[in-house]
């Protein structure tokens, strides 16, 4: 088994996650795209840990998971707060920082 294939899969998932962030308008789905990107990098880390014979890759992946979890909590809270006040979960509607 050529371990590079796992890296290809990771890259593919990452690109799909990036495209999701660009294309979707629902804030929650955009956030899911971000999570997909994070997970794809986790996969790459684990694969490299295996290639290099070093557990540090997995440790990094663990920390990524921790931080991502914290990020999900706060991010979703923000989305919900915005939804509560503006009754809209579309990222296009939050454009007050325009010129």
């Amino acid at each position: 088994m050529n371990l590079v294939h796992w890296l290809y899969l990771s890259v593919l998932l990452f690109s799909i996650g990036a495209a999701t962030v660009l294309v979707r308008r629902n804030a929650i789905i955009v956030f899911m795209g971000v999570e997909l990107m994070l997970n794809a990098t986790n996969l790459a880390f684990v694969t490299f840990a295996r290639i290099n014979g070093n557990v540090e890759g997995q440790v990094i992946a663990l920390f990524v998971m921790l931080v991502a979890a914290a990020e999900v909590v706060v991010g979703l809270a923000i989305i919900f707060t915005i939804f509560r006040t503006r009754r809209s979960a579309s990222v296009d509607d939050a454009n007050l920082l325009k010129y």
Partner: peptide
């Protein structure tokens, strides 16, 4: 960080 995240979520919600 996790504790801060929890606090943040609580305050936001």
């Amino acid at each position: 960080l996790l504790i801060t995240a929890v606090l943040g979520a609580m305050i936001l919600a």
